[in-house]
Design a protein around this nucleic acid. Structure first.
Length: 625
DNA sequence: CGGCGTACG
DNA sequence: CGTA
DNA sequence: GCCG
């Protein structure tokens, strides 16, 4: 039964123009109590003001207090002057400092570091009124611009300290203009009708909007997706209490507000994993990194993260140091160690991790370049015989090859170390996908199967929307099982023989007949895959082609889409539900689930899998944890 | 204090 | 042990 | 390093 086409939205008339001609500057303070202006609340206020005909902008109060306003942020400002400034009660005591800072920022063009400040979007001391957020709520409630006087912040301290300046003169005038007996005191401290009932902006919808607000720099698609994601958010509790335990329960967009923290955590993960070789520490930092990538607003104090799973004392200490100094002494200490630097360099080679790098290091090799030099010597002193497609053999007599016995893959990794590090644009990944598609269509056509039976999806970072990718993970299958059998092998052959493509095969998996065994005694045909270097536009590109049977399609797409942390947490989460998730299927105890939906026993899409696990679906672009 | 994702080559 |  |  279809929905009425013209079903009017419940919120048919949510808009008014009560904020017309007002330009509101909201100072967000990062607090989470009902009286604070959390980023969530700030976003909500902003949205509401804009919906009702006004203009608004959110500025972090800390940045004003600390003089960290950036010229760029100011240039982007929609406001040339504010008619109202919204401050929380918790900042009331800081009003003098804020006023002072606002005036200073307004009057100077550069700070001590030479950073250029654009004029603040605030005409201090003119008609601008500093009010509590409840003014906004009450305007909304009455659908009109209410008298701001009861909501004015107390400026007595400001008056005392800053006597005679334009701001306090205006403030004084405002107070004089007010009924002399209003409240019986000049200190009209946030007293107003709804002071005892903290502004309730409760619907789930509002919560989602608010959670969305910090992501205003997201592209519209991601923004909409994030909007659609309800998430386990409870406004009545502190946000940290409703922050989900698992990465698969929270959206993590590529562009997130904590990029002042994540790059250093990425470095810590790499350093502990490859440099130090402490994989437990690596996972610990990786989990915190995932938290930061999903935290919906800019962390300003490490204590905001108190109580979040995986973020313990030493993690908060690291965060605090980065917030205070922009640096991480712990990481710097590790970087000073030259052995760590060498190990990281050696790990650039494909098929070389911490253990192999250490082995080579202990044998005296300090860099990839050094190994390349060794190989080059062998090439020059050797017979130099050219062997088509077999240049590797030329080096087999080198000191390095005889003493370290690198695998063929590693040798290729050394020779092509620069090519491996070159990333592809999305366009180039799409081109590789096109090549695989062409080969797959030919293979299917040869079996009398049409294009409509082709299943093809490029997963990995590409599917998550990454602009640059180190490889292309292309999944290929066929809705008809007989079309999938041997498909990957056929694609390889067509690419090499019919299309004349230069393919270096690094690895080929189960060319049929392999079975997954671990979680079940039931036999499940595993994926047919290959890892190759494909020459394209003059570069060798890493191309993975994976071909699962059609009934495993959804699990495979999910399993190859990442991020790594997302995959880990999906499995952890499944375990907690008494289930087992693999790239082939979901298992309960030891038996594969074949008929969970009691319809036809097939998971057709990623969505089906998420739903079965009891998870809100996260589109790939929100899996950047 | 054990465990940290998991299957595969 | 390294990779996805 | 953090959790159960």
């Amino acid at each position: 039964m279809k929905r009425k086409a013209a079903s009017p939205r419940k919120t048919a008339a949510p808009f008014s123009s009560c904020f017309a001609d007002t330009e509101v500057l909201i100072l967000e303070d990062g607090g989470i109590s009902p009286h604070d202006i959390s980023p969530m609340r700030a976003g909500l206020l902003l949205k509401k003001i804009e919906q009702h005909g006004g203009t608004a902008e959110v500025i972090p109060a800390n940045e004003v207090l600390e003089g960290r306003l950036r010229a760029r942020e100011q240039r982007d400002s929609k406001l040339s002057r504010a008619t109202h400034v919204v401050l929380s009660k918790s900042l009331e005591g800081k009003v003098p400092a804020l006023v002072e800072r606002l005036r200073r920022e307004k009057n100077k063009d550069t700070n001590e570091n030479g950073t250029i400040y654009a004029p603040l979007p605030l005409t201090v001391g003119r008609s601008c009124q500093v009010v509590s957020p409840d003014w906004v709520s009450d305007c909304l409630l009455h659908r009109q611009l209410v008298d701001p006087r009861p909501y004015l912040l107390s400026l007595d301290r400001a008056e005392r300290n800053e006597g005679g300046d334009a701001y306090t003169e205006a403030a004084t005038k405002r107070e004089e203009a007010a009924e002399p007996t209003a409240g019986g005191t000049k200190k009209a401290r946030l007293s107003h009708p709804s002071a005892s009932t903290p502004t309730v902006v409760s619907p789930t919808h509002a919560a989602i909007e608010a959670r969305l607000a910090p992501f205003s720099d997201l592209d519209p698609t991601t923004r909409d997706a994030f909007f659609a994601y309800g998430g386990p958010l409870v406004l009545s509790k502190p946000f940290s209490a409703s922050f989900p335990k698992f990465a698969c329960q929270r959206p993590a967009p590529a562009q997130h507000p904590n990029r002042h923290l994540t790059p250093l955590f990425e470095d810590l993960v790499e350093m502990y994993g490859l440099g130090v070789g402490d994989k437990e520490r690596e996972t610990a930092f990786g989990r915190v990194l995932a938290v930061l990538r999903a935290w919906p607003w800019k962390v300003r104090e490490s204590k905001e993260l108190k109580g979040i799973r995986h973020v313990g004392g030493s993690m908060r200490a690291v965060i605090e140091e980065i917030l205070m100094t922009g640096r991480c002494s712990r990481l710097e200490k590790l970087r000073e160690d030259s052995s760590h630097r060498c190990l990281l360099d050696l790990c650039r080679v494909h098929q070389v991790g911490h253990a192999t790098a250490r082995k080579w290091y202990e044998a005296g090799y300090r860099s990839v370049a050094q190994i390349q030099a060794d190989l080059k010597r062998a090439e020059e002193t050797g017979d130099g015989e050219e062997q088509a497609g077999g240049e590797v053999e030329r080096y087999l007599g080198s000191t390095f090859c005889t003493s370290q016995r690198p695998s063929m893959e590693q040798l290729l990794g050394i020779l092509f170390v620069d090519e491996y590090s070159v990333k592809m644009t999305r366009c180039q990944v799409a081109a590789l996908e096109g090549i695989v598609r062409e080969a797959a269509l030919k293979a299917l056509a040869a079996r009398g199967l049409g294009a409509e039976t082709l299943l093809l999806q490029t997963c990995g970072g590409y599917l998550r929307g990454k602009a640059l990718n180190g490889d292309a993970d292309v999944l290929v299958s066929c809705t008809q099982a007989q079309g999938q059998a041997g498909l990957r092998e056929e694609i390889k052959r067509i690419m090499q023989e019919d299309m004349g493509i230069d393919l270096l095969i690094l690895k080929e998996g189960n060319t049929m007949g392999g079975f997954a065994s671990k979680p079940t005694h039931e036999k499940i045909a595993s994926h047919d895959n290959m890892l190759t270097l494909i020459k394209h536009e003059g570069f060798y590109r890493r191309l993975d082609v994976i071909s699962p049977p059609p009934d495993q399609w959804a699990f495979c797409v999910l399993g190859w889409s990442g991020s790594k942390q997302m995959e880990k947490d999906l499995r952890d989460y499944a375990d907690e539900q008494g289930l087992h998730l693999s790239q082939q299927a979901v298992f309960r105890e030891t038996k594969r689930l074949t008929n969970p939906k009691s319809i036809d026993g097939v998971f057709h899409s990623e969505e089906d899998v998420w739903e079965f696990l009891g998870l809100k679906y996260l589109p790939p672009r929100l899996r950047c944890a």
